[in-house]
Simulated scan of single mutants.
Amino acid sequence: MPNDSPFTLGPNSYGKSGVRLVHVGRDSARHEIRDLTVHTALSGDLDATHRTGDNTGVLPTDTQKNTVYAFARDGIGPAEAFAERLARHFVDRTPAITDARVGIEEHAWTRLGRHSFTRGEGGELRTADVHYDGQTAAVASGIRDLLLLNTTDSAFRGFRTDEYTTLPETDDRILATAVTATWTYTAAPASYDTAFDDAREALLAAFADTYSLSLQQTLYAVGERILKAIPEVGEVRLSMPNRHHYLYDLEPFGLDNPGTVFQAGDLPYGLIEGTVRREAT
């Protein structure tokens, strides 16, 4: 059918979000548990679907959900590899689909015994994101909501001031943040699991080792340390909100405050974001 409309369809995708998958490994009496939330997004030759409701090329989102569970039957492996398996399947097996993105968030359980585990609500997530266009797969790994705090070795001074500035300079403050970090691979590492562990260790070491004169400086130190630790990583994207802690005024109660009592701030908060890249050779 000819298109007589003066309008065109822009970028679009569809998929299944929030697929909750728990896999229990029972190869021995010491069970293993993997807890994932999987998101799929497919795009391709779907112009007729949007214009006329022709669903010939549409792989239902319910089918995408079922595929996640079916692929988990024989194990998951590294989250990055599982995401790539799914992305390649959706593109290679569905004629109208030319592009697939699969994102995974992994929820960590702490072992208590051979078959007992504990996990608090919220907290740190391991992430994986794969984009497959029918020829190449771009893979990224990461961490979300990793809570970090230094009780000292953080200052903030020498900043620009104007008539609206009320923030005092400080040589000693609490530095707290909830890190979201994503690192993109230029080549596959020997082991995604080992690379993730090394990147996380580098991130923690950089945060602990850096005498922070600004959260921007800490951000750069973290990205640089991950790039040094994982040669297959080309860039690191970081988001680090400043979880403010304010020294509480105890003078109205006739008490001093020798840097021990703080009020944890909520809203608003400073948000520091940036990307650290490896120079092209």
Rank of each mutant, 00 (worst) to 15 (best):
A100M: 08
F7L: 07
A87C: 11
R20C: 03
A280T: 13
E80T: 06
D47H: 06
I230T: 02
A205L: 09
G77N: 13
R278K: 14
A138H: 10
G103Q: 14
V130D: 00
D74R: 15
P11R: 14
A178P: 05
A128G: 08
V58L: 11
R101D: 06
T170D: 10
A187C: 03
L247R: 14
F207N: 02
S154M: 04
L167N: 12
H89I: 04
A176Y: 02
Y164I: 03
V233S: 12
T186R: 15
D249W: 13
T194Q: 09
L149D: 03
E279P: 07
V102Y: 01
Y248V: 15
I230S: 03
L175T: 12
P231A: 05
A100D: 07
T110M: 09
R173F: 00
V38S: 09
T194H: 08
A140L: 06
D62T: 05
D266S: 11
A100F: 04
T194N: 09
P60I: 02
M1Q: 06
G15W: 02
S141H: 03
L250V: 11
W183Y: 13
G254R: 12
W183G: 00
E235C: 14
Y164A: 05
Q217W: 04
A138L: 11
A138D: 11
P78W: 00
I104P: 00
A229T: 13
T127Q: 09
Y248A: 15
A100V: 09
Y220G: 00
G122R: 13
L42S: 02
T152W: 08
G113S: 07
A229G: 12
L204Q: 12
R126G: 05
G134I: 13
D4T: 04
N242Q: 15
G103T: 13
D209Q: 15
E232Q: 11
V22K: 13
I230F: 01
R237F: 07
L175A: 14
G270S: 10
D256C: 08
R26A: 03
R173S: 04
V38A: 10
E201V: 08
R111K: 10
D74F: 13
L250S: 13
V179S: 01
N150Y: 01
V91G: 00
T184K: 07
D171W: 09
R200N: 08
A79M: 09
F156P: 09
F82E: 00
F7E: 03
V276L: 05
D193C: 06
L167M: 15
